[in-house]
Design a protein around this nucleic acid. Structure first.
Lengths: 215, 215
DNA sequence: AAGGTTCGTGATAGGTTCTAACTAAATCTC
DNA sequence: GAGATTTAGTTAGAACCTATCACGAACCTT
């Protein structure tokens, strides 16, 4: 990931242990959620005693932060590969859904209930803005043809969040509601609020996507 | 709530202590989130020692379940009072947003990341379906005029979740997307994903509500 | 080979949930 | 009213957890 040639053996070992810790952590997160993550249990799984992990992560929050960062990067990768064939909102949406269903707790780690005191580090917001940029690129490529709304006009004056993206205000608007609408369905689906309702969430997702990409 | 006349003094005392425990629990949830809820700390606040609380709640999960049930009931109340002037989607949406912003952690307790092993009790699903019924009533009262979609036809055959609501499939569809779209915005807003983006989430919410109630 | 850095350990402090046994008080029954 | 029973709350303790500290052992550099 970063200058693999100039690594000393010690740094390589250290990085390898860090990723091994994170792998076990992901296992725990996937089965029991982030709130049930236990450094002690991870250490036991790895055959070493509790406090050893504190050489690699200062505390539990730092480990969770590392997981969040990795999750963001993974989503950005999924978006990038989905956009490699062209800027296509539908492809991004399906990539998002597949990525979310592949590991629901990973999605919820990013977009679910946050820890009240937690504040995301800068590199996370950087990756998040890259994700948004890919989505905005795809929205800008959609045919316009939709009447302008008052919110479009408002967004024209409040577009610094898009970090100088050249898209029109209507495209920004579309990007925002892509995000909020698809997240609304996915988060309710992953949280199990649709179970027992008898309809297929994939159909609802597809219907909303149709509406989103319609002129 | 249930035959207040036939209560013995003991039952009355018991109920009063239970609500006092829940009040302190809400205080903790509001400031630090549900995952940080500590029975020990509550007992200390109430001036009694830890294990005494287990006379009133079998374990931590049961207390959280009670909080979830109360939250659902509170939202149903808010919906009921918002609908007392007539079945109006906009009124319900604003009631929902006000209720969510009034205590973000209470909203996230219901609609946020669930505990993986947790399963909602029956009375919760009953209140949840009442909430959905109020929303569907309002959606049925909206003027139609929107072209039928394939998902409408699909919903016609998968409508048992609406518990025999007489609304048209188009109204059911509208109810569903009211839920998912508004939740999408609210959950991202409460989780802080809009902070620093420089636009007012209330405007986005209003714009989506406009789109939802438009013919 | 010597020295400094780093890794992993056990011990420890303080926190949590939750069980068990016991006391004291309130209530119910006779 | 007196005795029996139920109930509330206590302390003690087990089994976890996070996190810090001091120490010995391994390793890398010089």
């Amino acid at each position: 990931m970063a200058e693999a040639g100039t690594e000393t053996p010690r740094e390589r070992y250290r990085a390898q242990v860090r990723t091994e810790i994170k792998e076990h952590a992901w296992g725990q997160v996937a089965t029991a959620g982030a709130s049930a993550l236990s450094l002690n249990a991870i250490a036991k799984q790895m055959g070493m005693s509790g406090p050893a992990l504190y050489r690699y992560f200062a505390n539990r929050d730092e480990l969770i932060t590392a997981l969040i960062t990795d999750a963001y990067r993974s989503l950005a990768d999924a978006f990038r590969t989905a956009a490699v064939t062209g800027a296509d909102v539908a492809a991004l949406a399906h990539a998002l859904r597949a990525w979310a269903l592949d590991d629901p707790q990973r999605y919820l780690l990013i977009y679910g209930t946050p820890v009240p005191g937690y504040h995301a580090p800068d590199d996370v917001t950087l990756v998040a803005s890259e994700i948004m940029t890919i989505l905005l690129d795809a929205c800008a490529a959609l045919p316009p043809g939709r009447p302008a709304t008052p919110f479009d006009a408002y967004l024209e004056d409040h577009r610094q969040w898009a970090s100088d993206h050249p898209a029109s205000a209507a495209a920004l608007h579309r990007g925002l509601i892509c995000w909020t609408r698809l997240h609304g369905i996915l988060s309710l689906e992953l949280a199990g609020h649709f179970t027992g309702m008898g309809f297929d969430p994939a159909r609802l997702f597809a219907a909303e996507l149709d509406d989103l990409t319609a002129p």
